[in-house]
């Protein structure tokens, strides 16, 4: 009886008792959620346009953050470092296209997946070689990201909103909106979607695979940099950052590998749910630290019932 009460009644009682604290939990869930969504978008774009499950997305986050901090330490002004890092990510996109994707055109998916693991290994080695393996601190202040906190007082309680989290959310939302506009309103975006649907037909109407691939990998690079900055500001810049990208995996299973909307909704849902579960169920009942696995279990359950993910593209079949 007791256990049932703790499981099914008590958490909701607590939520109702301290609505301000519940809001705080929601806010923190939302912050991680939008970041998951952002990274998942990087995966989705690459998967849609080149059928690669891009294993290197995580290390790209680390690599971008390392490059940014490394360049700053070399004495470049912060915003110049951002510009140069973007150039580096563009260069990386071109290299991947030229060295990995183009020679492997028409090969089975698994070979492309292995190739992306190869890219991962290369980036780990190259990053360490150039910038060293020790942890660095994200140049939050130099970039002008505010570090204070805002206190709100809803329901006679208080909610603390860190300004750097707020910056992260705003930046992620802007990036996501920008991407959506780009995909749906421009000729290039249309070409990316077309390529995702039918690569052969895309080739036949003159869509240039090379152009699209460079573009998509560059977008993934920009996303990696954005995530690297905001996540690095919370957790420091080290190779452990890579892990955040793997948090995008359950998001992808939940949202479907091919759905932009799925990535966004899935990301936010996972961010919120894992936080709520951690606070109200994980800590009192399971000793905490459920955030590391909750998302994966959730994804597993979803896969049991909807193998294409919640928002995966309906497979259109003519009958």
């Amino acid at each position: 009886m007791d256990a049932l009460y703790l499981m099914f009644v008590d958490p909701f009682v607590q939520m109702a008792d301290a609505p301000d604290f519940f809001l705080q939990v929601l806010w923190e869930g939302l912050v991680s959620g939008v970041l998951y969504a952002l990274i998942a978008l990087g995966f989705v774009l690459i998967f849609k346009s080149s059928r690669i499950f891009n294993f290197a997305q995580g290390i790209m986050v680390v690599f971008a953050a390392l490059t940014l901090v490394g360049l700053y330490e070399m004495g470049l002004p912060a915003w110049v470092s951002v510009g140069v890092t973007l150039l580096v990510m563009y260069g990386l996109a071109m290299c991947v296209e030229r060295v990995v994707l183009r020679p492997l055109v028409g090969q089975p998916d698994i070979i492309l997946f292995m190739a992306s693991i190869g890219v991962t290994m290369f980036l780990i080695g190259f990053g360490e070689f150039v910038f060293g393996g020790e942890n660095k601190v994200m140049i939050t202040e130099a970039l002008g990201i505010p570090t204070g906190a805002i206190e709100l007082n809803p329901f006679d309680g208080f909610v603390l909103i860190e300004e750097k989290d707020l910056t992260a959310v705003i930046m992620a939302v802007l990036l996501v909106l920008g991407l959506l506009l780009f995909l749906n309103k421009t000729a290039m975006g249309r070409a990316i979607r077309a390529l995702g649907d039918d690569p052969q037909a895309a080739l036949s109407v003159g869509i240039s695979l090379s152009q699209i691939w460079v573009l998509v990998w560059f977008i993934a690079g920009v996303i990696a940099l954005a995530t690297g900055i905001v996540w690095g500001a919370r957790a420091g810049v080290s190779f452990a950052l890579e892990v955040i990208a793997y948090k995008a995996l359950p998001v992808l299973m939940l949202g479907g590998l091919e759905s932009v909307a799925g990535a966004i909704i899935g990301g936010i849902a996972i961010g919120l749910l894992e936080k709520i579960f951690e606070i109200y169920w994980g800590q009192p009942l399971l000793g905490g630290n459920t955030e590391t696995w909750f998302a994966f279990i959730l994804a597993l359950v979803v896969l049991l019932f909807r193998p294409q993910g919640l928002f995966g593209e309906r497979i259109i079949e003519r009958v």
Binding site: A191, R193, A194, D197, A202, I207
Partner: peptide
């Protein structure tokens, strides 16, 4: 392109 609208299909020809 199955998931694109007819009009988007046509427009993609103008790439």
């Amino acid at each position: 392109f199955e998931h694109l609208s007819i009009e988007d299909n046509l427009m993609s020809g103008a790439y």
